[in-house]
Amino acid sequence: MIGPRTKLGLILLMSPLLLWLTTLIIIPHLDMLYVSLREKVGVRLYEFGFGNYMTFFTEPLYWNTFARTAYMSIFATFLTLLIGFPIAYYIAKIAKGRMKMALFLLCLVPFWVSELVRTFGWMILLRETGVISSFLQWSGVVNQPIEMLYNDGAIMVGLVYTSMLFMVVPLITTLDSLDDSLIEAGYDLGGNGFSIMKNIVIPHAIPGIVTGSIVVFMLSLGNYLTPILLGGKSSLWFTGMIYSQFITRFNWEQGAAFGFLLLGLSSLIVWLGLKFSGQTLAKTMG
C-alpha cells in the first residue's frame, strides 16, 4: 500500500485538510464568537460582554421566533417521518425488482432540482389565483378564491416536501436490511400487523429513523427560502432574523449572537439524537 512514509510526506498530505478546516471552518467560527461577545457602546466603540445574548432573552420577539422555529422544525420532522415511513416500507419490503428501483429513483428526482424551483411550484399551486384555488372554484367546492399561501400550513407543506428525501433514503436503507423471515416468524407466532410493526419493524428501523430525523430537523431549522417565500412577511423564522441583522440593519454583533444560538440548538439536537441512538457522527455520515 502506497502511503506517506516520511514525516514531511504526511504533513504535505495533511496540509490541504488543515488549511481548509482552519481558515474556512474553525477560525471563522471563533471570530464569529468573538464578534458576538462585543457590545456596541458608542460609535466604533465596543466592550466585551454578553449584551447581545441578553438582548435575545429580554426581547420577546426574538426568543419567541427562536422557539417557534424550533417547534415548527420538530413538527415538520415528525410529519416527514409519519408520511415517509409507509413509503420507505413499501419500497423496501413490498415493491420488487424493477418497480422497486423505479420508485426509489422517483423519490430522488425532485431533489435534483433547486429548492427554489420546488418552492416556486408550491407558490403556483397554493396562491389565491393558484391552481388548487382555481380547481376548487371550478369544481364548485368553494365559490370564491381562497388564499392558501402565507400561513404556517404552507410553510409546513414546503418543509416536509423539501426534506422528504433525507428521511426516506435512510429509512429504506435500514428497512432493506431487515430479514423478511423475521416478519414471517412474527406472523407464525401469532402476531398481527400492528404488533409486528411495533415489536419487529420499528425497533429495527431506529438507526434510520434517528439519522433521517436529525438531518430533516437540521435542514428545517436552517432553512431560509421555504419559510420566507411560503410564509411571507409573517413567517417569523430565525434564519430570517439573522439575515436582517446582518444585511438590513448591519448589526453584525447581534447577528453573530443569533447565529451562535441557532448553531447551539442545531448541535444540541444532533448530539442528543446520536447519544439517544448510541451512534457516532462518523458512523452516521459514512
Partner: peptide, 15 residues
C-alpha cells in the same frame, strides 16, 4: 455537514 448553511455563510463573511 452539520453546520446550517447560513451560519457557514455569516462566519466566513465575518472573518
Amino acid at each position: 455537514l452539520v453546520i446550517p448553511g447560513i451560519i457557514l455563510g455569516i462566519s466566513i463573511l465575518v472573518f
